[in-house]
C-alpha cells in the first residue's frame, strides 16, 4: 500500500532521516515509536510530501507518488490528488478556526473533490456521529475541548475517504483525561480495517492494536517487530533504554481512572512487562 524506499532528509546540518525504508501493507497498523528528534514525524510528513525528502522514493499502491523515476517533482495537482488518498491527523489538530465543526469536516470534499453538497454534508454528519461529536456541529473548534477537536480532525480526514491514515502524535497535546476518547476512535478505525501509521507515545495503545512496531532513533530504524517481541524482548540496547524510560514515565503520569468503562479497560488490562 505505502512503500518508502531509501529516504534521506536533512535540515541544514541536521540529518533527520538516513536511508529509511519501510512498507505498510493494506489493512496493517504500524506504530512508530522513538525519542523526540528521532525523525518519526518527519518520516510521516515525507510519506505525504508535506516534507519533500532529499533523496529516496515514496510509492503508494505501487506507483511513484510525488516524483517521477528521474526524481522530477510531479505537478501540484497530481501531488494534491495523491495526498487526498492518505489522511493525516496532527498533534495540534490544526482544525480551521474560521469554520464550524461541520464545515471543517466538509472542507475536504467541498474544496477538493467537488462532490454534491447534500451528499458530503450527509457524510460529514455521519462521521461526526461516528466520532461522537455530532451535537457540536455548529460550534467553532475554539469552543471544543482538545479531545473533541482531535476527533473532529479525524472525521475531517475521513471525509476524503482515504485509503490509509497517518497519525502524528495524535494525543501528545491532550490533557491526560482526554486521551482515551481519541484512542477509542482510533481503535474503531483499526477494527474497520483501516491502514494506519501511528507515531505515538501511548505504549498501551501500541501494544493493543499495532501489527508491527518500528523503533526509530537518530533518523534510523533501529529495530522493528510485533509489539509482543519488541516490548518483551528488545534486541537493541537503545530500544531497551527508551522503553524503560518511557514506561516509567507513563507509570507516573497515568491519569486517574475515569468513569468511562472503556478507558478503564484500556488502562488496566494490558500490563507491559520488561525483562
Amino acid at each position: 500500500m505505502i512503500e518508502v524506499r531509501g529516504i534521506y532528509k536533512r535540515f541544514d546540518d541536521n540529518e533527520v532521516l538516513t536511508d529509511i525504508s519501510l512498507t505498510i501493507n493494506e489493512g496493517e497498523v504500524v506504530a512508530i515509536i522513538g525519542p523526540s528528534g528521532s525523525g518519526k514525524s518527519t518520516l510521516l510528513r515525507c510519506i505525504n510530501y508535506l516534507e519533500p525528502p532529499d533523496k529516496g522514493d515514496v510509492l503508494i499502491d505501487g506507483e511513484l507518488a510525488y516524483r517521477d523515476f528521474k526524481g522530477k517533482e510531479l505537478s501540484k495537482a497530481k501531488i494534491a490528488s495523491t495526498r487526498s488518498t492518505v489522511g493525516m491527523v496532527f498533534q495540534h489538530f490544526d482544525l480551521f478556526p474560521h469554520m464550524t465543526v461541520l464545515d471543517n469536516v466538509c472542507s475536504g470534499p467541498r474544496f477538493v473533490s467537488k462532490v454534491d453538497k447534500a451528499e458530503y454534508q450527509q457524510r460529514a454528519k455521519k462521521l461526526l456521529e461516528r466520532v461522537g461529536v455530532a451535537e457540536k456541529q455548529d460550534q467553532y473548534p475554539g469552543q471544543l475541548s482538545g479531545g473533541q477537536q482531535q476527533r473532529v480532525a479525524i472525521a475531517r480526514s475521513l471525509a476524503m475517504e482515504p485509503a490509509a491514515m497517518l497519525f502524528d502524535e495524535p494525543t501528545s497535546s491532550l490533557d491526560p483525561e482526554l486521551v482515551g476518547e481519541v484512542l477509542s476512535v482510533m481503535r474503531q478505525l483499526v477494527d474497520d480495517g483501516m491502514t494506519m501509521a501511528v507515531v505515538t507515545h501511548e505504549m498501551g495503545f501500541v501494544r493493543q492494536v499495532a501489527d508491527r512496531v518500528i523503533f526509530m532513533d537518530c533518523g534510523k530504524i533501529v529495530e522493528e517487530g510485533t509489539p509482543e517481541a519488541l516490548f518483551t524482548n528488545p534486541q537493541h540496547e537503545r530500544t531497551r533504554a527508551f522503553l524503560s524510560a518511557i514506561l516509567s514515565h507513563t507509570e507516573r503520569t497515568k491519569p486517574e481512572p475515569t468513569s468511562d468503562p472503556q478507558t478503564i479497560v484500556e488502562e488496566s488490562s494490558y500490563p507491559i512487562v520488561l525483562p
Binding site: R45, L50, K76, R83, D94, F96, F111, V112, R156, S157
Partner: peptide, 18 residues
C-alpha cells in the same frame, strides 16, 4: 497564520491556490 493550517489543508489534498 500558523503553518499547521497549510499542512492540514495540503494533507486533505487542497491545491496551493485553494
Amino acid at each position: 497564520v500558523p503553518k499547521g493550517q497549510t499542512d492540514a489543508s495540503a494533507a486533505l489534498g487542497m491545491r496551493p491556490s485553494v
